[in-house]
Nucleic acid binder design. Structure first.
Lengths: 205, 205
DNA sequence: CATTGTTTCTAACAATCGTTTGGTAGAGTA
DNA sequence: TACTCTACCAAACGATTGTTAGAAACAATG
């Protein structure tokens, strides 16, 4: 590795780190105030700079939210795919997916909130077609796990599968809207109780 | 009742009906595109008129969403209060509240979606203080029902109450985001299956 | 110290926003 | 027919939006 190479590499690394910093600030504002309602001046303010200066780092406001969402989704699907590839039973897969989801919420809370609030709107644009595609895979994945569970006789068969899917999907992801990583309960414990609630219900015995 | 009186009354009624029509159109657009991202010209377009003409009927874009939300919330709480006043057991109260919630979703789908998506942002303004107040009452109501259920030994006691509350709240209300009144399952059947899932879990036996 | 490349600021731009104003078409009344 | 009131249109308002261009500040290099 030549010195020239190392310099240009560390420069690129510093640049990438700055981008990540700015995206972190942007994600916070987008998540708390909504993407459409957020101005680039507010994002810049949160990052300690002026509105126009953001355009040295990013092409547009749209490309910021694009990078925020695609980074999160790439990581999330990598985690899901690891679970799906490990040949677990339906019930174990279910639990592992929920646990992985909460780990995602823990790690990418802002991105998850943005994804939930804005994906329907953003998805209409061709640039964000991967959002709809992600939701399709999501549905496919959960339905497959749930169907397998019903087949194996581990999940009850008297409920509408589509309803079951929405129930699971929603109960897991809405947690992002109230979850705080510094809260009373750690992510793992929340996941455990969630799984218990969904699997066994809230009735006593 | 004098003729003059009747005329002014029917005029007022026609006026109110037109307002309701326009608010219906506005609610649809607000719900599907988001309040902040929606322009008054889009609302007017959906109502078959020009942007400025809306201001003959309403003070502002804000007052439209205000009327949409407050109408829905008033009706919802009237329904909840009827349930709470009828001296049911914890479990019966639980079921009745869920059923009533789904009836609200059925009747005020757009308003519910707007409430969920925008109440956090709108609530910061003094004008929409009633949104935060409604959420406070909501929390109080569900916690009281759940606590009573745990006391009576009908709900399990090994779960965090706050988590339980969020779980119930979220599972019920996110249904508004996908529910269609003309869908495969009627509102009552959805409510029934939801109650079964939450109470008994999704495991077989 | 001079020079270069990187990052931010200053200051504006065209477009679009919510909103206002003044006018007008049409129905109802005398 | 003349007048009035209701409901809308046409056209603009100032403010704010995302974005851009050129200059200034800064750090690093020679």
């Amino acid at each position: 590795m030549s010195p020239r190479r190392r310099d240009s590499e560390s420069a690129a690394a510093a640049r990438a780190e700055r981008r990540a910093e700015l995206l972190g600030a942007a994600a916070k504002v987008f998540a708390s105030r909504g993407y459409a309602a957020t101005t680039v001046r507010e994002v810049a303010d949160a990052a300690g700079m002026l509105g126009g200066s953001l355009y040295y780092h990013f092409d547009s406001k749209e490309s910021m939210v694009d990078e925020i969402l695609s980074t999160f989704l790439t990581d999330m699907w990598a985690a899901y795919d690891r679970v799906l590839a490990s040949d677990l039973s339906a019930r174990e897969t279910f639990q592992a997916l929920v646990a992985e989801s909460f780990r995602c919420i823990d790690r990418y809370r802002e991105a998850v909130v943005i994804y939930q609030n804005e994906s329907k709107l953003l998805g209409e644009s061709p640039r964000f077609a991967y959002l709809a595609e992600s939701q399709r895979r999501f549905r496919e994945m959960w339905l497959s796990v749930l169907d397998r569970g019903v087949m194996d006789g581990v999940f009850r068969a008297d409920l509408d599968t589509g309803l079951l899917y929405r129930f699971v999907r929603d109960t897991v992801w809405v947690a992002a809207s109230w979850y705080r990583s510094d809260g009373r309960l750690p992510a793992g414990e929340i996941a455990r109780q969630y799984v218990a609630m969904v699997l066994e219900g809230i009735l006593k015995d």
